[in-house]
Design a protein around this nucleic acid. Structure first.
Length: 437
DNA sequence: CTATGTAAACAAC
DNA sequence: GTTGTTTACATAG
């Protein structure tokens, strides 16, 4: 089996291995590496919170030991970023080239804008901002300029990386959506990992999102995208647990395939990590859900008021006027589990199929995907025959049924939940649960 | 309908 | 007050 064969055989059932291995080795030994050792992590969405060092094993680069080669994009690859393309596809193309990271100086340039954040943003977080001690040659310090070119295809200038002096940030296409901007920020970060505050910093420095808004809505949007977009995953801080919050890292899938629309995760994949089930959930998720419920009630209240006003206005002229809001005001939300779509997610996401439990050659693709033409949509990457319905096992009957997660009726969900996989989790802590089956 | 941005509720920290 | 999750809604295409 040659490399191409082994690559195509990975489709669906197993994510593409790091292509640096492809370029660096001509043997098949890489097929089981590096993911074998971190099998539970090969589908990043399967984790709620991944320990900082546990996930990528030999592929992951530690901020403190730059002895490994993380994935990043060459200028050529980045230049092919779809600029205004639809988010229905991953933003950047799959990357198959590896180069050493450019380390982003997270501190010095951001101070001038610190007031925007109304928070203390000193250089206390330097996980990815420090010099690359392990690589003194500095040969890869052009990374960010590549990013700049990528996101600003029409702008050929800009060497942002080494000696930027402020205004060259125009090289970044600031009109890109949040998800992609976050992606860019993380992509150039050491280990593709940043903390929230430094993502804020990056936005202040490299985008207009912060300056264009007098509110903190842009921060909310960043958090929203981090939470909702499957391209981003939380990881623990490597050492200091006292740090507030998690670090955010690009998933392996995002590194391979780019960031995808945040929308796609909103309803169909209510939680991108998909580890929720009947198990007690992380409090924050529960709180978020509660907030959502409350928000929905509030919205219904508002809507009711609007409709009331509407009917009061229409009472004399058009008594039977149809109001599109009417039905929503009469809609009752049944008592439902907070996360009815878990099973949906579970069955639609390859996370819940163990690629190691399913022989790869049991379900070969109808036609091998050529190298570089791998399926990018994780929803479409299934370990069974591509001829099967993508949603055979899914409570969500079709991809178009991507609407509100609120079930039509509790009975429906009850029935559907019976289809749930027999999930077990090992590890008691909410942050350490691991999907094992 | 999809993608995106934004607001907001909420709980934990 | 910050962080993270989630829902709702508005808008553009």
């Amino acid at each position: 089996m040659n490399v191409e064969d082994s690559f195509s055989a990975q489709w669906g059932a197993q994510p593409a291995f790091h292509t640096n291995n492809v370029s660096q080795h001509n043997t098949n030994s890489h097929i089981l590496s590096p993911f074998t050792a971190a099998s539970k992590d090969i589908y990043p969405y399967g984790q709620h919170s991944i320990s900082y060092n546990a996930s990528y094993d030999d592929s992951y680069i530690s901020p403190y030991s730059n002895t490994h080669c993380p994935r990043s994009f060459t200028a050529m690859e980045l230049a092919s970023f779809p600029h205004n393309s639809s988010m229905s596809e991953a933003y950047p193309p799959a990357a198959y080239h590896i180069e050493q990271p450019k380390h982003y100086d997270s501190g010095s340039e951001a101070e001038s804008n610190d007031h925007l954040m109304q928070m203390q943003m000193h250089d206390e977080y330097d996980y990815y901002g420090g010099p690359c001690n392990g690589e003194q040659d500095g040969t890869y310090y052009g990374h960010y300029s590549n990013m700049a070119q990528a996101s600003a295809p029409c702008n050929g200038m800009s060497r942002y990386g080494s000696d930027m002096s402020g205004e060259e940030e125009a090289a970044i296409d600031k009109e890109q959506p949040y998800a992609q901007l976050i992606y860019l920020a993380l992509l150039q970060a050491d280990g593709h990992t940043m903390i929230l505050r430094d993502i804020y910093k990056w936005f202040i420095k490299n985008t207009d999102k912060a300056t264009a808004s007098k509110t903190k809505g842009w921060q909310n949007s960043i958090r929203h995208n981090l939470s909702m977009n499957g391209a981003f995953e939380k990881v623990d801080h490597p050492d200091e647990d006292s740090r507030k919050g998690f670090m955010w890292r690009l998933t392996e899938q995002a590194l391979r395939e780019g960031v995808k629309s945040t929308t796609r995760y909103r309803s169909k994949h209510p939680n991108k990590r998909g580890t929720r089930n009947q198990q007690p959930q992380p409090q924050r998720q529960a709180s978020g859900a509660k907030g959502g419920e409350a928000a929905r009630r509030a919205a219904n209240l508002k809507r009711s008021k609007r409709v009331l006003e509407y009917y009061q206005r229409q009472a004399r002229s058009v008594p039977d006027a149809f109001d599109p809001n009417h039905s929503t005001t009469t809609t009752t939300y049944p008592p439902s589990p907070y996360y009815p779509s878990d099973t949906d997610f579970a069955y639609n996401d390859p996370t819940h199929f163990s690629p190691y439990a399913i022989p790869l050659d049991l379900f070969p693709p109808a036609a091998p995907y050529p190298h570089g033409a791998m399926l990018r949509d994780p929803d479409l990457v299934l370990p069974h025959s591509p001829a099967d319905s993508l949603f055979t096992h899914s409570p969500t009957p079709s991809s178009s049924d991507d609407g509100p997660r609120t079930p039509l009726g509790q009975g429906q969900w009850t029935a559907e939940l019976r289809l749930a996989p027999q999930c077990e989790f090992q590890g008691g802590g909410v942050g350490s649960q691991e999907y094992i089956g």
